[in-house]
Design a protein around this nucleic acid. Structure first.
Lengths: 94, 94
DNA sequence: CAGAATCCATACCGATACTG
DNA sequence: CAGTATCGGTATGGATTCTG
């Protein structure tokens, strides 16, 4: 949330690797599972083009797009309060 | 989220059982773990009164209170789109 | 390129029983 | 009342290797 990864799909359709690279630490397995779940929930569409090399594009549906706003609210909160959160955690670590 | 359980702490301080009863299916273990995590993150304070029978009250901190707004945004989205979500899931179940 | 397959470690949750 | 202790099943994530 703090890195606003959901914006990755906000613009144009994205390919698998366009999502995986900026996410960095996310393995293909997890990315695949996440995209599948979002497809299942009608948040994202998956379009496979019959080419070589293969190309697949993921795009937000209107429903998925409508989720950007509340997500942004959550991210904004996180940006504003992350320091406080970390301070509380390190304090209670003792 | 759909049951807006976070509102349980929005008003006055609440006792353990005041939280557990409305949650219904939540076991004491899970409730304890959740409250501990929220305490650790500075979202909730825990106050134990030295009485018999024991009394413990949980209350939102200002930080915890500030989280109510983005949570409400998420809940609102859920209320508005839950039907769509369920429809997409049952459709992709086939 | 876009993943699938496998293995493993943890995290998390539900149910049950017990206690200061 | 407000938890703790224990057991067990499942879900989830990372690492690695392989494939159409």
């Amino acid at each position: 949330m703090d890195r606003e990864d959901h914006h990755l799909l906000a613009g144009r359709p994205r390919r698998f690797s366009e999502l995986q690279v900026p996410l960095g630490s996310v393995t293909p397995k997890v990315l695949t599972e996440s995209l599948r779940a979002m497809c299942r929930d009608g948040l994202v569409t998956r379009t496979a083009y019959d080419e070589i090399p293969p190309r697949v594009e993921y795009e937000l549906t209107p429903l998925g797009r409508s989720l950007l706003e509340p997500m942004a609210a959550g991210c904004a909160w996180n940006r504003e309060h992350l320091a406080e959160l970390l301070a509380a955690r390190t304090a209670s670590a003792r």
